[in-house]
Simulated assay, not measured.
Amino acid sequence: MSGNIAGMAWLSRRANPSASAPRPAALPPKLRGALSRLGWTLVSVGLFVGLWELAWLVGLADPRLLPPPHIFLGSIPDQARFFNTATRWQIGVDPAAGPSPYEAVGITVAATSGRVFAGLAIAAVLSITIGVLIRYFALFEKLTLPTITLLSPVSPIAWLPVAIFIFGIGNAPAIFMVVVALFFHMVLSTVSQIDGVNRNYINVARTMGATKRQIYARVIIPAILPQMLIVLRLNLFGAWMVVLVAESTGVGFGLGQVIMLARNTFNPSLVFFTIALIGLLGFLTDWLLRQVQRRVLYWVPETAGVLRGL
């Protein structure tokens, strides 16, 4: 009997070899999702680059005005030497003096990123604080909200002369421009998010004897944080755009200075190389902010849209 069973098992394995083969271990869902997103990111960027290269190949793009990626990305050492803007723009100073090209790129990226994150942090703290105070104190709302609403449509570029008048030339006007670009919109977003908090949460807190201060600290602020971090992420891209304009006024090292240098010297390759670098930095900072969201919003399930990439 046992011999018949063994023979039937052998015949079954012969008929279906995959049944006896060990199955490969499945990837964890998080890793599988991360690899999928990375793959689609590479496909998206590759498609864009491929269309650009195709336009150059068939003659639709003039390489002197619209150089393809293989030109401005294939000569990184040549592009990096232009990033020593602080020394290059000084009169009577040897352009070759100062840091090496790659050190200049690192200093430039660090300087611009520092201005973006400093302005973003200041704007976030001020706007959320003032937005909460507007809804907490009726008098404060009457004194500030009309002015904030009046100034919110003003383009951040219009504040550039004001920044120069107040702070002169340096880091301060660039950071001020980032703060102004984000502040008004984030204040109004904070007020809107407070108004949209589920009233049942507030009523339950009142039933349990919570004071007004406790309701704001334990109910309203935690309720609006997820959407406020989404607003912060979206404004991050605006901060990168504004800081480049502010840096063009003269701040020593900065990506805005490199863009101005490329424009003045009619160097399209340097322009697109800097644009690619800014895009990469914006992508990385957005990813970093998403990781902060996952740590701060520990009570929000990871399947919720607030923690997923846009």
Results as ranks from 00 to 15, higher is better:
79 Q>I: 07
306 V>K: 00
228 M>L: 15
9 A>W: 04
274 T>N: 01
43 V>M: 14
145 L>I: 03
126 L>Y: 02
184 F>E: 03
101 P>L: 07
31 L>S: 11
248 S>G: 13
122 I>S: 05
20 S>W: 13
164 I>Q: 02
194 I>T: 08
33 G>L: 10
85 T>K: 01
27 L>P: 03
140 F>D: 01
137 F>R: 14
142 K>A: 15
309 G>K: 12
19 A>D: 09
232 L>C: 12
241 M>Y: 04
198 N>G: 03
239 A>N: 11
58 V>P: 01
98 G>L: 05
224 I>T: 08
160 L>V: 13
143 L>P: 01
44 S>G: 08
308 R>K: 15
283 F>N: 09
284 L>P: 04
233 R>V: 00
199 R>Q: 11
52 W>I: 05
202 I>C: 05
191 V>T: 10
120 L>V: 14
234 L>Y: 06
111 A>S: 12
129 T>F: 12
115 R>M: 11
66 L>F: 09
100 S>A: 12
30 K>H: 08
266 F>H: 10
23 R>C: 06
141 E>N: 09
207 T>L: 14
161 P>L: 06
268 P>V: 04
147 T>F: 04
266 F>D: 11
233 R>Q: 08
51 L>D: 04
74 G>E: 01
29 P>E: 11
204 V>W: 00
65 L>I: 14
273 F>A: 00
144 T>S: 14
72 F>P: 01
152 S>D: 14
194 I>S: 08
60 L>T: 13
215 I>G: 07
249 T>E: 03
107 I>T: 06
130 I>Y: 02
194 I>H: 07
98 G>W: 01
291 Q>E: 08
289 L>S: 09
115 R>S: 04
69 P>T: 09
217 A>G: 06
30 K>M: 12
171 N>K: 03
8 M>D: 12
100 S>I: 02
1 M>Y: 12
8 M>L: 14
60 L>G: 11
199 R>A: 07
29 P>G: 09
137 F>A: 15
139 L>A: 13
161 P>V: 06
31 L>N: 04
141 E>G: 03
290 R>A: 08
58 V>N: 03
91 I>E: 10
190 T>F: 09
235 N>Y: 00
307 L>P: 10
98 G>A: 08
231 V>Q: 11
55 A>D: 02
146 P>F: 06
182 L>T: 12
271 V>E: 12
287 W>L: 08
156 P>K: 06
75 S>Q: 15
227 Q>Y: 10
78 D>H: 07
256 G>P: 05
68 P>I: 02
290 R>M: 13
59 G>A: 00
121 A>W: 01
250 G>A: 09
